[in-house]
């Protein structure tokens, strides 16, 4: 409540100002809205250091601006409060497993800077129940988190299937998960990626399964306010640069060396000859800064969500277009 009242008062006072980059530079740090705690996407480790896929996106932007991935202040936000925090100017960038939808963009004064993770909503159920599809959940109780597309898809899906179910709606994902685990609900539903992470929190993960059916498209991406094109471009091209770096084989380990590469695409990406950073308000070596700090897209993925993480999520749709995935970044040129 308090957060919403504060955000409310900020909204009342806000003026349509541009110049987020100037604000960030003056402040000496990027303020990034992130998850309150979701393994793989955004979670403080046991030393209090934030880690995750979305966290690395914040660090990538900070690295591009300051050449220092540590110059980020993280603001943990619930599903419900995240957009108000961005609209009110409390944060510069929202990087929190957030689904790109038409109404969030056009109806809330926001812009998604691209898709950095392609996901879909799925259901977790007890194996012992032997359920095959979502239709089998007729009459069931389903735990879900508030303020998410998940909550909305759930209502739609059951309406479409013409069956009814009880939805129990919680502020936090963890509370919803606990209620499911205690037996209050027959199913727990959220983005497939989050189900991988949340299942590991259960005391007996082996007793639960994720139904193969996905009921929605959940393209996640970083979000900014409308009205500041330069900032929008900076975030968008940070994302594309991460993808282009992967496609061109530029990694954290070889980026310094590749500045001397003969390949024209790599030379352009790393600012070896011409300056592609200026148009974004960044220096020539902006991509070098990014990749040195967090690696390329593939490295970020594998470290936080893929084989280098406990989640072991396959690249699937999130592979590069050449490998049968959906990631296809415009070139730096």
């Amino acid at each position: 409540m308090l957060v919403r009242v504060i955000a409310f008062s900020l909204l009342l006072g806000l003026s349509a100002r541009a110049g987020t980059l100037d604000d960030v530079l003056a402040r000496g740090a990027l303020v990034c809205g992130v998850n309150t705690g979701l393994a793989g996407f955004g979670l403080p480790d046991n030393r209090g250091e934030w880690r995750g896929f979305d966290i690395d996106y914040c660090r990538a932007v900070a690295a591009a601006i300051f050449d220092d991935p540590q110059k980020v202040r993280f603001t943990p936000l619930s599903g419900k409060d995240r957009f108000t925090a961005l609209q009110s100017g409390e944060i510069d960038l929202l990087s929190r497993n957030t689904t790109w939808t038409q109404s969030r963009e056009a109806g809330q004064g926001l812009l998604f800077a691209g898709v950095n993770y392609f996901d879909g909503q799925a259901f977790m159920v007890r194996k012992a129940r032997n359920l095959k599809s979502v239709r089998d959940l007729k009459g069931a109780s389903i735990c879900v988190q508030q303020g998410t597309t998940t909550e909305l898809n759930l209502a739609d899906t059951f309406r479409k299937l013409g069956i009814s179910a009880e939805t129990v709606v919680f502020t936090g994902g963890d509370e919803a998960l606990k209620a499911y685990e205690s037996g209050r609900c027959d199913a727990y539903t959220t983005d497939g990626s989050a189900l991988y992470a949340q299942r590991l929190k259960l005391s007996a993960p082996g007793e639960h399964e994720i139904l193969g059916e996905t009921i929605s498209k959940e393209p996640f991406g970083p979000v900014v306010r409308q009205g500041d094109d330069r900032w929008f471009n900076l975030v968008k091209w940070t994302h594309f640069a991460l993808l282009d770096a992967e496609e061109l084989g530029v990694t954290a380990a070889n980026v310094e060396r590749l500045r001397q590469s003969d390949t024209p695409e790599i030379r352009r990406l790393l600012g070896a000859d011409n300056d592609f950073g200026a148009g974004l308000g960044l220096p020539k070596d902006w991509v070098v800064r990014i990749v040195k700090a967090v690696g390329n897209y593939g490295e970020i993925f594998e470290r936080n969500l893929g084989q280098g993480s406990p989640l072991k999520i396959p690249r699937g749709l999130n592979a590069q277009w050449r490998d049968g995935g959906l990631h296809y970044a415009p070139p730096v040129r």
């Binding site: 109404s103 969030r104 109806g107 998410t148």
Partner: peptide, 17 residues
Amino acid sequence: QVSGTILNQTGAALQTI
């Protein structure tokens, strides 16, 4: 809780608050 869901669906933050 109900108004939270409504806010989520409609994006009408100011109005619901």
